[in-house]
Design a binder for these strands. Sequence first.
DNA 1: ACTAACATGTAATCTGTTACATGATTGA
DNA 2: TCAATCATGTAACAGATTACATGTTAGT
Lengths: 173, 173
Amino acid sequence: MILGFLAEGPMHGYELRRRMEQLHGYAHPVSFGTLYPAIARLAAAGFVRQESGPGTASARRITLHLTDAGRAELYERLRTAEGTDITDGQRFMVLLAFLSMLPDKAERDAVLRRRLEFLSQPASFFYEDGHPLKADDISDPYRRGILVSARATSRAERDWLTAMLTAGAKEPS
Amino acid sequence: MILGFLAEGPMHGYELRRRMEQLHGYAHPVSFGTLYPAIARLAAAGFVRQESGPGTASARRITLHLTDAGRAELYERLRTAEGTDITDGQRFMVLLAFLSMLPDKAERDAVLRRRLEFLSQPASFFYEDGHPLKADDISDPYRRGILVSARATSRAERDWLTAMLTAGAKEPS
DNA sequence: ACTAACATGTAATCTGTTACATGATTGA
DNA sequence: TCAATCATGTAACAGATTACATGTTAGT
């Protein structure tokens, strides 16, 4: 997320944090104790450059810039996304938010296809004797709610993914 | 999740792990390095009792039991759920999976209402100049997809929550 | 004057991830 | 006999959470 937002332009850590929380729908807070060490790690790796603004030692203002290496790293992470980056809805959503930055359409489509493939394999959340329970078999109303919501979610996303993959089939880049 | 599954009956850590991964829809792995320390913490707190099965020192078999204190703790966590437990979809789903165990219907309904309240406040994921962007205003097709999917998800869950809260209005317990 | 928002960090603690390590049981 | 699954853990490292700590700027 840090690399992605900085690819849109330089900004302060404080602004970065606001955007991160917005992208989560304010469902998850981003603390400074998480953010600043993360920025420091990216800076140490050479992906982010920290430019000191008009600041005193006590009240410093630092503008974060994405380096060329940082942009390359962003592309690489988008391209090679796998595992929980594909299967976990939250993580995939973060990926999607920056996927348009990946220049190669074939690579972007490949990411969408991996997600669609995962969503297409029939998944349940509750099992009995090894086989999945249908919504009708579940007596617990709350658990039935989980299945109902998950189905609607999966359906909506699969429809969108399918539309994306077919609609842009003939367009270049 | 550990307290919840053990409330259904005693089981091995290995079996616990399988159910945890199922509940995540296999979207997120649960490693033993996470699981066993977590069990050990719960055991140290007196919420879980570990009963040694027919095991040698090398190949031990341990059955996990929920203690009375553990059950009380489970109820308490369900009852007092707030913050990310309500706002984060993943966490709330885990809560829902065990919510029927909470004896008091009024308390169960209160949890549902907190979720409904969060989902009802208009949320976007992208902002410009401080105000939320509508789906039509977003040119990036991937980000538009995020909004479209999120809307369908929110709609489905809100419908279900509303139905749950009105349907059971007259029934006791 | 005061409050809220802007702005950046550190320290202690807790939790999660990954790799390592061992051994039993069941079915092909 | 060989592989997969069952079964339980530890150690090193990375990352997240919470509380602490400081100071500025803009609006009421």
